[in-house]
Simulated assay, not measured.
Amino acid sequence: MHNGSLDRHIYDRTKGPLLDWSKRLKIIKGLIEGLVYMHKGSMLWIVNRDLKPNNILLDYNMNPRIADFGSARALSSDVAEEHTNMVVGTCGYKAPEYASRGVYSVKTDVFSFGVLVLAIISGRKNTILEKQGDTVGDLVRYAWHMWKDQRLHELVDPSLGNGYEIAEITRCAQMALLCAQEDPADRLTMTDVATMLNFESMSLSMEPKQPTVLSKIFSPTPHVLAPCWWVSS
């Protein structure tokens, strides 16, 4: 793809400012369209199981393409669950039930999508603090605190400056947090997400639940990231 992978833009100090909010929102909407098709529109319900910025490719017009289906699995329906003893994927983007028990469904991709959106908004990576009992990651926790305290402007990638609408950031962040819930039953479907991102269609009355409190004291600071420790089952 002409513009490479998403991670080369959102985590790069030189390219990051070139990816303004309108382009980032376009990428988010494109990912939603792709996932709705994978989860509802295709003949089989497809779970990618490794959604992350490295696997989102950008074409000449910055349209996103979901890539790397080497870990993907097909399900018989969008409500089906399967189990595997070989957990693949990337730490920080794997859903808790998949990382710990090998259980996957379309809700596995929904979790990863939620983290992806938070990364697109913030330009930050999500680190799992497993030794402290973390299951969702520091970026998700930080974003929840910023949403709860109505300080989402602090979550936004500084390279965006003031070039964004806080109402759009708020809607996208709340939607992302509703996707990145620890319990799959609390997560949205991608069809819900597609409806929710229509800014004029509905108000966001749903509130994301607070992530489980860590076993050690947590300070919602995005600047100090701990290593990620995990073991596949």
Rank of each mutant, 00 (worst) to 15 (best):
I121E: 07
D149M: 08
D138R: 02
K125Y: 03
A143P: 11
S159C: 07
E154D: 13
L177R: 02
H145Q: 15
L178E: 02
S112H: 04
A176T: 03
L118Y: 05
Q174G: 13
P184K: 07
V106Y: 06
L139T: 04
D138S: 10
G89P: 15
Y164L: 09
P96V: 00
E168H: 00
Q132E: 04
L118C: 12
E168N: 01
W144Y: 10
K148Q: 03
V106H: 05
L155F: 12
L160K: 01
V115P: 02
C172E: 03
I169M: 05
Q132P: 00
L155N: 12
D109G: 03
T170Y: 08
A185F: 11
H145W: 13
Y164Q: 05
Y164E: 14
T189L: 15
E182R: 13
D186L: 14
Q132Y: 05
N162I: 11
Y104L: 15
K148E: 14
T189H: 12
Y104G: 10
G137K: 07
P96C: 03
N126W: 04
Q181Y: 07
L139A: 10
G161Q: 00
V156K: 00
R151E: 05
T170A: 12
A119Y: 03
V140W: 12
D157S: 08
Y164M: 08
M175I: 03
L188A: 01
D134Q: 09
D134I: 02
E165A: 11
D134L: 02
I128N: 14
Y142T: 14
G163F: 08
E165C: 08
D157G: 05
M190C: 06
A180I: 00
Y93E: 05
Q181L: 00
V103Y: 15
L177M: 07
